[in-house]
Design a protein around this nucleic acid. Structure first.
Lengths: 218, 218
DNA sequence: GCCTGTGACGCGATATATCGCGTGTGTGAT
DNA sequence: ATCACACACGCGATATATCGCGTCACAGGC
């Protein structure tokens, strides 16, 4: 249902990069990843440990027991692999950030839906609790009943700016994602020339200049 | 902070009662408990396993390995203990139910607070999503890579494609990064209008179309 | 050129075990 | 009777490992 946050080989490489900084054990890597992405992405144990096993099997890392921890250390072969793909690494962080952002947007919509049913359920539970236990305090005044949605920020320049910036983020992410897919699809069944890249670079520079121009005048 | 759901020896006894019904392994007991209390209470592994170890140590249950599971079975001593305290057992279920209800009341209050602060963000997100989402479906991005492999169309055409795709990635990343910075800088000292977003969206759509055109002809 | 496995991969669920904190509880000293 | 204090207990956090599902990429046949 939910698409993977890390693309096919990206996690493998990212783990190698983390272990290149310092030896770490599995749980530590989970926390490190969660930290790197501001807690928005938290890989599960079932994601990390099989990958570490695979890496060890391939000889890119070595493991050593330390009490109840299992410390993994990068090997020379691992450093070589990492070095030969250092350039791929830059993109991964952005990719994951984008991925998480899209996921978050999806969640926002779902939460919106869930809220309605949750509200009903909570109100019902509150009624039941009140009926079956007379000793409990009469707390929890549930704000049931529609909620008029009276958010009146019409005409607030501050809010408009904030919204615009966020929306621009989404537009940029979506654009980048689409074009990446386009290029890879094309690459898999034909060729992509440097001229395309040159064109892309020029056009994007122009777009940026134009956008900056609209930001300038007012 | 949160008081325990089970009183001092209650869990111990309840576990014994569950194992009197049938032999079970640890995880199964966790699920059984979660079931009994309608999912409102879910004991953690750190609650169950130490208790099972203790019970075994005392000879009230016996354990036997079954694949990667550890099945626990009640012993005669366990049944005796259970019998001698059968009267306590009735109270426990009610106790736990009450405990959970009280906890739920606390949660209700917190949720009510959280909902209030969430409402604004949710409303904002919903409006944005409705206005800006153009039904994105395409997903999946992966790392291109492993250059140098032999393919049908010869020589370095594949390498060139790979390099071009990668470079395009960088161009896209850089562009996105720059524009994000531009917009945030501007937002912090002035305003950003929806018109800018509209312009950006239109221009990027055109760029994508043009790039696709160059990919199409050959 | 297109289609079809098939194997690798990400990831939630399953499964187990220990550590340390806060708190309750019975015991022994006073 | 009272008080202190060690010990037991519940529980979230720490730590590790496997299984099975869905998906994606790449190879090989057509």
């Amino acid at each position: 249902m939910t698409p993977p946050v890390f693309a096919h080989g990206s996690l493998r490489l990212y783990l190698l990069a983390l272990l290149d900084e310092q030896p770490r054990h599995g749980y530590e890597l989970i926390q490190a990843l969660s930290d790197r992405f501001g807690g928005t992405y938290s890989p599960s144990a079932g994601t990390i440990y099989p990958r570490l096993s695979k890496l060890e099997e391939e000889g890119l890392v070595s493991k050593s027991a330390d009490g109840r921890k299992t410390v993994y250390e990068i090997t020379d072969a691992g450093r070589a692999e990492l070095e030969s793909r250092r350039d791929e690494l830059d993109g991964i962080e952005n990719e994951v950030t984008d991925s998480v952002r899209r996921l978050a947007d999806g969640v926002r919509a779902e939460v919106n839906d869930a809220m309605r049913s949750l509200r009903a359920e909570l109100a019902s539970a509150a009624r039941e609790a009140k009926r079956s236990s007379t000793k409990t305090s009469a707390s929890a005044a549930s704000t049931a009943g529609g909620a008029g949605e009276s958010t009146s920020w019409g005409g607030d320049a501050r809010a408009e700016t904030s919204r615009a910036v966020h929306e621009a983020d989404l537009v940029l992410s979506e654009f980048r994602q689409q074009l990446r897919t386009d290029l890879r699809t094309r690459a898999s069944r034909g060729r992509v020339t440097p001229e395309t890249v040159t064109l892309l670079r020029a056009r994007l520079a122009q777009v940026r200049a134009d956008v900056l121009a609209t930001l300038g005048d007012h």
